[in-house]
Computed example of a mutant assay.
Amino acid sequence: MTLEGGLESSASLEGAAALEREVVVVGAGPAGLSAALNLVRARRSTLVLDSNRPRNAATFASHGYVSRDGISPLELRRLGREELEAYPEASFAKAVVSNVTRIDGGFAVAYGASVVTTSTIVISTGLTEKFPALPSLRQFYGTSAHSCVECDAYEYADQPIALIGETDDLAARALVLSQWSRDLIVFTNGVGVVTPEDEAMLGERGIRVERRELADVAGDRSGITGVALADGETVPRAAVFVRPVYAPNLAYVSELGLEFDADGYLVVDGGGRTSVPGVYAAGDSTAPGPQQLIVAAGAGAKVAAALNRDMLI
């Protein structure tokens, strides 16, 4: 079997020559593509593995990325991959990585029916999101329901907005969101924690806290029109910002003995080095909560520089 980029695959390490790349990058979001682009420009043979199921696939436009403000996240990924594949040192495969194990001199990365060996790995696989259990929320996600305040709040400046969440940091997120609109209601769904002191602080800014249980979000073809409470009342709103519970996608590296923080994110130094030599990480898997695309891309470039220097020693 031949993969995209001309890379031939091997079903196993036994009875067949194992594939060899200097670097395998797992994940082709901004962090992974940025790392890979800088690595191939350093003439490092690099294989990028990606499932092509990005968390922001439903989002029509991404913001804050200089020279690309308003671009579709999928288009940004397409352009990044197109740039990368112009280099002969680059290979790309659409695949889910199932496991990474240590071998002499490096690592074996299993994906699909194939295995590739490499001396170094860049982890850039991002996060999964768990939303409050509202039946219609996903229907509007990426259009009039969003999770990233810094990315999307500008488009709803001075409009009636809802913040929905079930965590204990809702007051802090509401405070940031109030920079764009003071017509804001925080919905805790009877679960999220807002202390009396924080509620008073928000009240001084005209922000109300609604603790009743929710039934769903309401809307039509134009987008969200309100938040439906379990008691039958619908509170009119033009948009919803939801506070998901995030979790990094790192089960495939569970055998490497990596160090994680208390929230399950990878512990890295300033160059993206993990606790295991030869394993680097960039992007959402290294810090709580999602990073803006341009921040993740910058992290990928920093990792590439550190990795390339380390390989010279």
Rank of each mutant, 00 (worst) to 15 (best):
L137V: 06
A90I: 10
T120W: 04
R221M: 08
G289H: 04
M201H: 06
P290C: 12
V176M: 05
S45R: 14
Y246E: 12
F92Y: 15
A58C: 02
R182Q: 02
P88V: 14
E210S: 14
V217H: 01
E8K: 14
D231L: 09
G5W: 09
C148G: 06
T274E: 04
A93E: 13
E14D: 04
L214K: 06
V303L: 09
L163A: 11
S12Q: 04
L37T: 05
I164E: 06
G257M: 06
L39S: 03
L137C: 06
R208I: 01
E233T: 09
H63Q: 06
W180P: 00
W180Y: 06
Y141R: 03
A57H: 14
F92S: 10
I103G: 09
E89P: 05
A174C: 07
D220E: 10
W180V: 01
R221Y: 08
T274S: 13
D158P: 01
R77L: 11
A42D: 14
E85R: 15
A282K: 15
L3N: 08
T225S: 02
M1I: 10
L137E: 13
D261G: 05
R102A: 10
V26I: 13
D269E: 04
P54V: 10
G29Q: 15
R138I: 02
A282D: 07
V48Y: 12
S67E: 12
N38Q: 13
S10Q: 15
L175N: 05
F92L: 13
G289R: 00
G298M: 07
D310I: 04
A215D: 15
S285E: 11
L37M: 03
V24N: 08
A162Q: 02
M201T: 09
L79A: 11
T118N: 10
N38Y: 11
I103H: 11
G206C: 09
A238V: 01
T128R: 03
Y154D: 02
V115I: 08
L13W: 09
R44C: 02
G27K: 14
A251S: 13
L177N: 04
L19V: 13
R211T: 13
G270K: 01
V109P: 04
A86N: 10
R53V: 05
P54F: 11
R43K: 11
D310E: 07
D104T: 14
P277Q: 00
C151A: 11
V217K: 00
N249F: 09
I161M: 07
A36Q: 12
